[in-house]
């Protein structure tokens, strides 16, 4: 009895050790962000005076009002567009047996392993010709395309898991295919759609390479891409940089804490079913 108790304690000690290792970097930048701007600091140390103004200063210096607005505009375009397109395509692939459906599915799945590096160069030159660089629409369409393989695949697995009798019953009643999607399938699909929407938001918020290439205008960049250049300007001002990083991390962490179940299941299950 006693040995199991000891074993359990040892397990929790290991777990706690790992958790500390994950969290310590955050503690370090939170403390750094509270030191006076530009001051010399060392490792983990409590600031002599808690300087909350770093957040306001970083917000102004990095022009986060514009950056966050761009991030939100892009996400507000990508999330609904990608969700609708992926849902429609997946519905057809999973239940309507379209002509060449298998080949189309494979075509989408292939995109899962393509690195962004492979598409980013022509995207810049082609979109520039179309006037879609320095344009929210250009980034929105490019991100929607890049996130499409996962979305189609995620919704397709979801629709395939719905019992066929449900669809048969609706078909016998003479419902048209779109009515079945809207009236029968969507009401029971919100959990899958919500998870996918959250992942889309996260990927859109975190996207870096694509944005710095397609948005040459610094004012139209997103929060992380603006941060990427902010580092160059203030590379030695650690309190200010830390505050800026926390501003960029903040929204996604809050969302993650609220919807942690969706995030964890989305990333792990999405991976496993593949």
């Amino acid at each position: 009895m006693n040995t199991t108790r000891t074993a359990a304690t040892a397990r929790y000690l290991v777990l706690t050790g790992m958790a500390v290792a994950v969290l310590l970097p955050f503690v370090s930048i939170v403390l750094a962000a509270l030191h006076p701007s530009g001051s010399q600091i060392s490792g983990l140390s409590l600031p002599e005076s808690w300087t909350w103004s770093n957040f306001a200063d970083a917000w102004r210096a990095a022009n986060f009002s514009n950056l966050v607005m761009s991030s939100l505009i892009i996400a507000a375009g990508v999330v609904p567009l990608a969700l609708v397109l992926a849902t429609l395509a997946a519905y057809s692939l999973a239940t309507l047996n379209p002509l060449g459906g298998r080949a189309i599915s494979i075509g989408f799945v292939l995109g899962l392993t393509l690195p962004i590096e492979l598409v980013v160069i022509p995207l810049y030159f082609d979109l520039r010709q179309l006037g879609l660089t320095n344009s929210y629409l250009g980034v929105i369409l490019a991100e929607t395309a890049l996130f499409m393989p996962f979305g189609v695949y995620w919704m397709q697995t979801h629709f395939a898991s719905i019992p066929g009798e449900l669809l048969e019953a609706a078909r016998v009643d003479g419902a048209r295919s779109f009515t079945i999607l809207a009236r029968v399938l969507m009401p029971i699909s919100w959990p899958a759609v919500t998870t996918l929407g959250l992942l889309y938001f996260m990927w859109s918020w975190n996207q870096f390479l694509l944005v710095i290439v397609l948005m040459q205008d610094p004012d139209m960049r997103t929060a992380p891409s603006g941060l990427g250049f902010f580092v160059g300007q203030y590379s030695t001002n650690i309190p200010l940089l830390s505050a800026a990083s926390l501003i960029v991390i903040g929204p996604i962490v809050v969302l993650y804490l609220i919807f942690q179940r969706n995030f964890v299941s989305g990333i792990t299950q999405g991976a496993i079913k593949g």
Partner: peptide, 18 residues
């Protein structure tokens, strides 16, 4: 444990620079 998965890598990078 899962937290690093959702963070923008730019911010992770800045944290580790420090």
């Amino acid at each position: 444990f899962f937290l690093p998965q959702v963070l923008p890598l730019v911010a992770v990078g800045i944290t580790w620079r420090w």
